[in-house]
Each structure stands twice: as C-alpha cells, then as structure tokens.
Simulated scan of single mutants.
Amino acid sequence: MPTDRRTALADAAISVLADTGMRGLTHRAVDRAANLPTGTTSAYYRTRHALLTALVRRLVDLDQAEIRTAGAHTPTIRDTDQLAAGLAAFTHQRLTGEGRRRSLARYACALESVHHPELREILVPRANAARSAVEAFLAAHGVTDPEGRTITLLTCVDGLLFDRLINGGTISPDDVIPLVTAALHPPEPR
C-alpha cells in the first residue's frame, strides 16, 4: 500500500469504483476498502467530487507510469504484425488483474465526465512514447495524416477493449490487424 495517505485513499477509491460502480463510491466505502477508520476519507476529501477528482488524477498517474514503462521498452515498429501484437499485448494488460480494475474505473469516470467537464480535462489522452511510435510507424508508411489516423486507430482499439471488458473475451493480434490495416489504408473520402 502506498505510504502517502491521499494516494492510498485514491487507490482504494479506484477499487471501490471498479467493484461497485459509481453509485457505490462513497467516503465510507473507501474507508472500508482502505481499512481505515470511518471519516478518514472525508477528512482528506471533503466532498464526493473531491474524492472523484483525486481518483481520476490517480488513474491518469498510474496509466502514464504504465505507458512510460511500455514506451521505454518499445522498439521501432517494423511491420503491421508487430504493431498489432504490441497493441494486443497492451490491451491484454488492461483486461486482466489490476489493469481490468483500472479499466472499469476509467470507463466509469469517462461516463461521469460527461456531467463534469473538469474531469474530462484530466482524462484527456496525453502524448507519450508509445503513441509517438504508432504515429511514426504510420508516417513511415505514407499515411497522410498520421496524427489523426493514430488517434482513430487507438480509439478503435479502445472500443475493442471496452467491448471485451463488457462482453468478455480477449484481444489477439488477429483482432487488431484489421484496425491497423484500416489506419494504413483509410477509405477514400466520398
């Protein structure tokens, strides 16, 4: 458990949200999940909105750390099979264990951000080495708008992840190859 109390509470809040959904995210539930006396969460995060904001910030911090680690080990992408395998491996992490819990919490927060735009600002995707590697791959293969196609590709992979999270199953490179192919060869405008 993190030594910083605020971080520990945010981590517990992520677990509560993943386990019980948005309605179950209460100060008392976080106290129980963190194994702390009743009122502890409220002392650190007075309002539910403050708790939710801390949870979203922690999710982003965890995601960015994970992406930095993956980016540090991301070689130059040579072909569509390698890109598809990398995206499938990344999504596998998001479908299992702690990654699954964070994915469930992330999607719940994304839906909540419709009503709280300040949360959307925190959740906005950030530039990172992995995203840059995908963009460089698309640019090297002559895609005219590599930045836009990268966003489209990663959004499609995110949709596939969401589907598997809700309906079960895994994501293999074979599931991702058609998405990569579509990013490399976008349809002609009508």
Results as ranks from 00 to 15, higher is better:
residue 89 A to V: 02
residue 93 Q to V: 05
residue 23 R to M: 14
residue 121 E to W: 13
residue 148 G to M: 09
residue 33 A to W: 00
residue 37 P to I: 00
residue 140 A to V: 02
residue 175 D to H: 15
residue 166 I to E: 11
residue 98 E to W: 15
residue 84 A to P: 00
residue 40 T to N: 06
residue 170 T to I: 11
residue 1 M to P: 08
residue 176 V to H: 03
residue 39 G to S: 07
residue 4 D to G: 08
residue 170 T to L: 09
residue 10 A to T: 02
residue 20 T to E: 15
residue 140 A to M: 07
residue 178 P to E: 05
residue 88 A to E: 01
residue 180 V to R: 02
residue 149 R to V: 04
residue 151 I to N: 14
residue 75 P to Q: 11
residue 127 A to E: 14
residue 11 D to F: 01
residue 65 A to Q: 15
residue 30 V to W: 02
residue 7 T to C: 06
residue 185 H to Y: 15
residue 5 R to W: 08
residue 35 N to L: 10
residue 132 S to N: 15
residue 121 E to G: 15
residue 81 D to F: 12
residue 87 L to S: 02
residue 39 G to H: 01
residue 105 A to K: 00
residue 31 D to W: 00
residue 39 G to N: 07
residue 161 L to T: 06
residue 131 R to A: 13
residue 41 T to L: 05
residue 68 R to Y: 11
residue 47 T to D: 00
residue 16 V to N: 02
residue 8 A to E: 06
residue 46 R to F: 06
residue 155 T to P: 05
residue 71 G to F: 03
residue 43 A to C: 07
residue 141 H to Q: 09
residue 71 G to I: 03
residue 164 R to P: 00
residue 71 G to R: 03
residue 42 S to N: 13
residue 2 P to L: 09
residue 41 T to N: 05
residue 95 L to D: 04
residue 76 T to V: 13
residue 105 A to M: 09
residue 147 E to I: 10
residue 18 A to H: 02
residue 125 P to Y: 04
residue 54 A to W: 04
residue 77 I to C: 00
residue 144 T to F: 04
residue 117 P to A: 07
residue 163 D to F: 05
residue 110 A to C: 08
residue 46 R to G: 08
residue 105 A to T: 04
residue 16 V to K: 00
residue 13 A to F: 00
residue 99 G to A: 03
residue 15 S to H: 04
residue 130 A to W: 10
residue 28 R to M: 13
residue 149 R to S: 15
residue 128 N to V: 05
residue 72 A to E: 14
residue 78 R to L: 12
residue 46 R to Q: 08
residue 15 S to R: 07
residue 8 A to P: 00
residue 102 R to G: 11
residue 46 R to D: 06
residue 13 A to Y: 00
residue 62 L to V: 08
residue 14 I to D: 04
residue 176 V to C: 01
residue 132 S to A: 14
residue 50 A to H: 07
residue 138 L to M: 09
residue 12 A to L: 03
residue 148 G to T: 10
residue 163 D to E: 15
residue 131 R to T: 12
residue 156 C to T: 08
residue 107 Y to W: 13
residue 8 A to I: 01
residue 129 A to C: 09
residue 109 C to H: 03
residue 75 P to N: 07
residue 30 V to K: 02
residue 55 L to C: 14
residue 188 E to G: 14
residue 103 S to C: 08
residue 82 Q to R: 13
residue 52 L to Y: 05
residue 52 L to M: 13
residue 189 P to S: 12
residue 49 H to Q: 12
residue 108 A to N: 05
residue 170 T to D: 13
residue 154 L to M: 13
residue 44 Y to K: 02
residue 112 E to D: 13
residue 83 L to F: 04
residue 115 H to N: 13
residue 176 V to S: 01
residue 84 A to Q: 00
residue 182 A to Q: 12
